[in-house]
């Protein structure tokens, strides 16, 4: 390693140091199934949603690619894992890898379409790609099950030994482990020179070529990784519910994801996870309290949160911390 990179690597390692709120967060995730013994399936859905939202955080929050089509990767991952389990092998980990490869390939193929345009053009292309996949899955019902969804998925025991149970306990630990590993990878990526280059591209895309950064190549890789993460999330959902529906590819899923990221706060990874938790819990509670008009209350709640925490929940919490501990300005 050369001297300049050695110095940079030392600094990067310093930046990667684990902070205490992070430890608390992941400890809470470990304790959650014991505190909520009857909600393991629900908890696994939150973990999967958090993972899905991490993909958008990488693509939008870190790389700055405006996307309303992450469901394309989520759905493709789900269908790939489901079809792989039905026709080839039911091993869940192998299914995840196959889904990851398929969705990252889609990312590499779709990236050139995106990179030709700017924000709104990109947004439309992401929507279009997801729309094409949605209709393809709808029409190709002999393979995908069409509107009835893909049924008959049988997932083999994890590591050949641990059977998936109806209560969702194994599903939760499986989803949490995958989420944690992907999170660690993204956390490292974010503070790496690659991640910093993505931040630079997001902040000033015109400037980066003059600094020697191959903008298109970096964005292609970021988009493909984001696609792979969404694909893994889709595959996890397919494996833990043993079902994939067209809903996985739908526009509202992508739009909901954007909303969750805005709610949690973009660009810091924890915003995606916190947004997924708050959104899922609010959704769960409000639909129980008011099954007819829960969306009204959900909308009201979201508006309030966004009004009082403009950078999302993580931004609001960090301002609150500064205010309480450092005597800074009021949040």
């Amino acid at each position: 390693m050369t001297p300049s990179w050695e110095a940079a690597a030392v600094r990067l390692r310093e930046r990667e140091r684990w902070k205490s709120p992070e430890t608390v967060f992941w400890c809470a995730a470990l304790v959650a199934p014991f505190v909520l013994p009857d909600d393991h399936l629900f908890l696994s859905q939150i973990a999967i949603l958090g993972l899905f939202c991490l993909s958008l955080d990488l693509v939008l929050g870190i790389a700055g690619i405006l996307s309303l089509g992450q469901a394309a990767f989520f759905g493709l991952g789900g269908y790939t894992a489901g079809l792989f389990a039905i026709h080839v092998d039911g091993d869940p980990l192998l299914g995840l890898v196959v889904a990851m490869v398929a969705t990252s390939l889609l990312g590499v193929l779709a990236a050139p379409l995106l990179l030709g345009g700017r924000d709104l053009t990109r947004l439309l292309i992401t929507v279009a790609v997801a729309g094409i996949l949605y209709e393809a899955a709808n029409k190709w019902s002999a393979v995908t099950g069409g509107v009835d969804g893909l049924q008959g998925i049988v997932i083999a025991p994890l590591f050949g030994k641990i059977e998936f149970d109806l209560g969702g306990t194994v599903a939760y630990w499986y989803a949490l482990a995958v989420l944690f590993l992907v999170f660690l990878g993204l956390r490292r990526l974010k503070s790496s020179p690659f991640g910093l280059a993505l931040a630079g591209i997001r902040l000033n895309p015109q400037r980066m070529p003059a600094l020697g950064v191959p903008v298109d190549r970096r964005l292609t890789v970021a988009y493909a990784i984001g696609g792979a993460v969404a694909g893994i999330a889709g595959a996890l959902l397919a494996q833990t519910t043993q079902f994939v529906s067209l809903d996985a590819l739908s526009f509202h899923r992508s739009a909901e994801l954007m909303l969750i990221l805005v709610l949690g706060g973009a660009g810091n990874l924890y915003g995606a996870l916190l947004g997924a938790i708050v959104f899922s819990v609010a959704h769960h509670l409000l639909s129980e309290i008011n099954p007819m008009y829960w969306q009204f209350w959900m909308g009201t709640l979201l508006i309030l949160i966004v009004l009082f925490a403009k950078d999302g929940l993580t931004g609001g919490l960090s301002r609150l911390r500064d205010h309480l501990w450092k005597g800074g300005t009021a949040p």
Partner: peptide, 27 residues
């Protein structure tokens, strides 16, 4: 550039390491 164009939400060190290339000029 005349406008300086530093990355506003990156730290000084991140601004410097974002494009670091091997050579005599180190951090």
């Amino acid at each position: 550039p005349q406008e300086r164009d530093v990355f506003p939400s990156l730290t000084v060190e991140e601004n410097l390491t974002v494009v670091a290339v091997d050579g005599p000029w180190t951090l």
